[in-house]
Every structure is written in C-alpha cells, then in structure tokens.
Design a protein around this nucleic acid. Structure first.
Lengths: 362, 362
DNA sequence: CTGAAAGCGCTAACAA
DNA sequence: TTGTTAGCGCTTTCAG
C-alpha cells in the first residue's frame, strides 16, 4: 500500500504517465477536459509528487538560497547565520544550498552583495536591508524575476519583498515599559535611549515604550538619540542623569554599554533601573551587578531559522508566504541569563552537533 | 562540468558501479585493497552522493510518527498538537505521516495508546507520560525495538526514552520569582500554589521560585499543594490570604482561576501580585483587571514543533538526539497578551494557512 | 493531442 | 570478489 504515484493516476485515468505529467504541470498539448479529469483523480487519491524522484529526473540545479547579512556585529549576526544554516542543513538531502555573501557591516555594500547573489541565480534571497532605500530597486528586480526576497531582522517595507521576519518592535518597547514600571514608584521619570528615530525599528520600539509606560502610571519619558555612537551615548546619558530625576532607562539598540558606564559613573548603579536590548557577553557583568534589570532579546537564531523555513516551505511545498512574520522577543533577566549566554557559545565548545542544536532551543 | 558520480569513479578505477558502492558503504565482498583505491579516488575527485537518487533508490516505507497526547486540557494540548502537525506537514512530501492516538486526559490510558501505536509500527513515538512509572516499560520496549521515544511537555526520566522536550521548569520558577520581587517591597511574603510536589515539574518550578525569591530579597515563601483541584485551590488560597501577609503568589500549574477568584473575594485584586502559568482565554480578563501581573508561558506550540523536528532530523538525516531539549518560557504580560491570544485562535479564523503559520511565530 | 521510452544516480539482487 | 542489471518516480523527447 504505497503512496500513489503518477503511474497510478495514469492507470486510473487510462492515459499514459506523460499525459498525467502534462496535466499536473499545466503544460501545453493536452485537452482541457482530460486535464480536469486527471486533476480530479489526482486530488481524490491524494497524490503528492515524490520530490526526490523529481530532483533526480530534472537534475535540476540545487535550490539555492542566497544570504547576505552583515558580519558585524558578530555576536548578533553570528546567531542569525547559525539559525539560517541550522535550518538549511535539515534540507540538504533535498538539494538545498546556501550561498553566503556577507557584508562587513549593516548597510554597507548591500546592493552589490545582493546583485551578486542574484546573478548567481539564487531561488530566494535572505537579506538585512540596512539601507532600504538603496536596496529597494534590487529587491524589486529580484522579485520580478521570481526570486523571493525575505528581509530578516530589519525590513524594507516599501519594496516588493515577499516577506519580512523581524522581532515585533512595538512589543519590545511595551514590554520594556511594563517591566520598568514594575520596578519603579508611580510617576517616575524615564528615558529612552535610541539610535535614530528615522529608523523604523527604533521609532516603533520607542513609541511602544512611551504608550505603555504612561499607560502604566509612569511619568515623563525623555527620548535621546545616540546614533549608535558610544561616546555620544555616554555623554548624553551622563548629562541626563545629572540634570534630571530619571528612575529608569530603556536602551532600544545594542548600544547599552556606554549607558551602563554612565550610570556607574553617576553613582547610580542599581538605583536607576535599566532595560536593554539583545544580549552579548560583555553585558553579563552588568546583569550581575544589578545595573541591567532586564533585556529584551530579539532572538536572532530563531529569526534565521524562520526566514529559511518560510523560504523553503514556499519553494519546496508551494506554501504561500505571509506578508510578515513578527516574533515575540524573549525577556532576559538574571533568572535565565545563563541559558542565553550558553546558547551563544560557539558550537565547537559543545560535545556534538545535536547538542548544539538542542541547546539553541530557546 | 557536472558533479562526479559513482559511475565516474568506477570508470577511473576501472571497476563496476557495484564495486564502488560496496567500497563506499563498507559492505562486505570486496578486497581491502580495491576499497582503499576506490576511496582514494572518490576523495580526490570530491565525490559526494546524490541524496535524491539514493532516496529514490532505497524507497523506504513512509516514516510514521506516532503521537499520543491528551485531548484535555484543550487550550494547551491543542496548541501542542498544532505544533506537531505544522512541523510534520512540512515533510509530508517526503512521506512523513503522523498517527494521532490521543487519550482523553493526561495519564489516562497512556500505556494502551502507546502500545497500540507501537503495534502499528511507528518509527518514532511522541508522548506525554502523565504516569511515567506505568509507561516506562512500554517506552523501554519501544526503544529496544529501535523506535525512538520523545517525551514532550513532561518527562519520564528513568525510562530509556531518547529525548524529552519540555519547558525549563527551574527557569519558570526563577523568572516568576524575579518578576514578583520586582513588584514587591523587599522582604515581602509570598506563596507558591502548586499541584503536587511529587510531580517533578511542579517540584522544580517551586524550587526555582524559592531559590530566586529569597536570593532577590524576598521574604518567606509558603508552598501550598492544591492537587489541580479548583475548590481546593480556592479554599486554601482564600484561607491563606486571610491569615497571612502575602504580597505575591505564584501559581505553578494551570489551576489559576480559583486563585484569581480567591484574591478577588478577599478584596485584594491588584494588591496581591499574581504570577501564573501558561495562558488560556479565561485568563485574559484577569490580566486586564490587573489581578494577574504576568504569566510564564510554556510554549506548547513550539514544544510540538521541536519534538517533531528532533524526531525527523534523527530519522531522515541521522542526526543524533540530545538527551533533552529544554526551552525557554515566554513571559506574558499586558504588553504582549494580545499576541498570545491571537496565536491560539483556531486556524479557521485566519485568512489563509500561511497566515496561521506566520501567526504562530511567537 | 497522446503514448512510448530513455534516462537522472544510486542500490540491491543475482550472475559470473 | 566483482560485474551486470533492473528498477525507484518523474521528466522529457520523439513518435504516432
């Protein structure tokens, strides 16, 4: 009682396998009527093609997934890449190959890298549009050639990209606000330190924070743009703390270390509550000191997995792509810090690939 | 310039494809010398097998994954099942089939259901051992027949099950404690309402809570076993609140509604901070009223996905199974409540399967 | 418009 | 010990 194949359909329809193939694939050279008949039979017996056989027969080039993401910041994009590779690796039996063409840092060379991958005839393109404006023509060009573009980590919403996989920025901001409010007396003043409000992600996180913070009985919220610059963040933060009665700070971006230092320099460690974003090793000590109360973690590994998963579900199984896929951030606190740090250990430190895999399951 | 195959090696070595096959797979019936020669050639030309062709040739029977999980509590196990089906569905083109044989509720009939699936010759068995003692012989029997057993949601640690996929219970307890402490003045008394301390999951969550709560400056912690009974939980909780200065409660199990009611009945809504476990629709109103401050969510959908993923990675790709896979719980607060509720909508309410899929990505 | 037949690269059963 | 051969399920070319 094996899975029905194309021959079985042919037998029932009393036609040849070739005709069934034509019907199934909408090829020309077949009557509309026989096509319908064959499709009906195929549907009714629950036919589904054997992909291995198809791959063998068409000796079709392997499914190529182009990946163009930054190399820096390592701790973050390493995890994104690991998620991509982990998921892609599950399908290498099916001929799925990844072409990895990283750029040095976000927004740098991305047009060139994407075009290059495109010319290498990839079937799907996973990328982090650091400069959405510049990249939009390339994305649109790719889509018009039938190459599905999946934005990951950051979106290019006005392009024709098929889908985007990001952490839900509004929820990040709201969670930060709700957590912060839980630490502070009602009406406490707070500050958001962000990168640039022109960046959609930064703006949404900030807006989410503001909405939730005041809604939760918090006081005034000051917003500071630090442009991802360490010195600027330190200066502005230190100045802020010496002028204003700030009880809590939410750092929107990865640029939290200077803020930690500024809090320390102002002698407010543990006094001012700090909520940060993502996680890297240097932050651990500030958790232990009680400077960082919690961090809203963007789950880059999961983002990578999901991006590949969506691409392959579409390419291999014909599933439609959602417009976007927003994932829930994790909350990192002292309780679970160790687990997040462990999960970003390089795989080499683990006893086996399986363990590396298992260990990633956050 | 196509990829060299087994015939190419045969041509170079001046032997037949059959011999190359024997050499490559360490089969018997070949001289050690010719084997070495062939392996050398294979290595030097960078041979790698065409897996599609191999799969086609070896025509394995469909991969059967047996699933035996409870039907009740619906909200929870529906999501677990949805995760299982979603992940399995991605592989049905590869001949993966799920045999679903649910029991009415946890620990009921599980031996019978598991044995039944075993006799249906499944390749892997995913189950929730509600009664680990009773199930251990069946699990061991399965494993000795080469059927990989994957415990999900709850473990049978003294059996020979291949792996277990659970939420990390200790982290659940610790997170609850840390969150609770953030709401309360130092030294506040707290209570844990659990099911039965003989259940490993309940014990570990309780222990995690206690360790973290006192470590975080909390006061005394009272532990109450409510045996998953609504009335018992209400009575005990109400009595507790009237006798003791309790500032926060952590409910370890799904049995939180009577606790919410008891808090209300004691006139302490919003005054006593409550941390719960998981999420179902009836809880939403208590979030909105401020009775529930947060809930530690066990991510049943993700657990189901991961269980299937591990099984198939092992079965199809030969990846080793980790001893266990503990996942990080999510923290549900007012900030993100809506997203969790949306994700548990039945798929029928959504516009398309893709959206249902995308929407699950928490 | 439809049928027949030749592979795709590999495995496995049977011959030599 | 080694060679030969017949498929696995599908696509594709060439006849009819």
């Amino acid at each position: 009682m094996s899975k029905p194949g194309i021959r079985e359909i042919a037998r029932i329809a009393n036609v040849s396998p070739g005709t069934v193939d034509r019907a199934l694939h909408g090829r020309k050279g077949i009557t509309e009527e026989t096509r319908r008949r064959i499709l009906a039979i195929a549907g009714s017996i629950g036919y589904s093609p054997d992909l291995a056989a198809r791959a063998l027969s068409t000796r079709r080039a392997p499914v190529l997934v182009g990946v163009s993401i930054p190399r820096e910041i390592r701790y973050y994009f390493d995890q994104l890449l690991a998620g991509i590779m982990s998921e892609a690796g599950r399908f290498d039996r099916l001929g799925v190959k990844v072409l990895y063409s990283p750029m040095e840092r976000l927004g740098q060379d991305d047009v060139q890298k994407a075009s290059e991958l495109l010319s290498r005839r990839v079937d799907a393109l996973i990328l982090t549009p650091g400069d959405p404006q510049a990249l939009t023509p390339v994305i649109d060009e790719a889509e018009s050639r039938g190459v599905r573009v999946i934005c990951v980590d950051t979106d290019a919403p006005s392009s024709r990209r098929s889908t985007a996989v990001c952490v839900n920025p509004e929820v990040c901001g709201r969670l930060a606000a709700e957590l912060l409010a839980s630490y502070l007396p009602e009406g406490s003043g707070a500050a958001v330190i962000t990168g640039m409000l022109e960046v959609e992600d930064h703006a949404k996180k900030t807006a989410g924070f503001q909405a939730m913070y005041v809604g939760n009985g918090g006081g005034a919220v000051q917003v500071i743009e630090a442009h991802e610059d360490e010195d600027e963040a330190f200066q502005k933060c230190f100045a802020l703390l010496s002028r204003n009665p700030i009880a809590g700070i939410y750092v929107n971006t990865v640029n939290c270390l200077p803020v930690c230092r500024a809090i320390g320099a102002a002698g407010l460690a543990g006094k001012v509550k700090l909520i940060t974003t993502d996680l890297f090793r240097e932050m651990a000590v500030f958790f232990e000191k009680g400077v960082i109360a919690a961090s809203i973690h963007g789950r880059p590994f999961a983002q990578g997995e999901i991006a590949v998963r969506l691409a392959l579900d579409h390419l291999l199984n014909g599933r439609p792509l959602p417009r976007e896929s927003l994932l829930m951030p994790h909350v990192v606190m002292r309780s679970n810090l160790r687990h997040f740090l462990d999960a970003m250990e390089p795989a080499a430190h683990r006893r086996s690939a399986a363990e590396a895999f298992g260990g990633r399951q956050l």
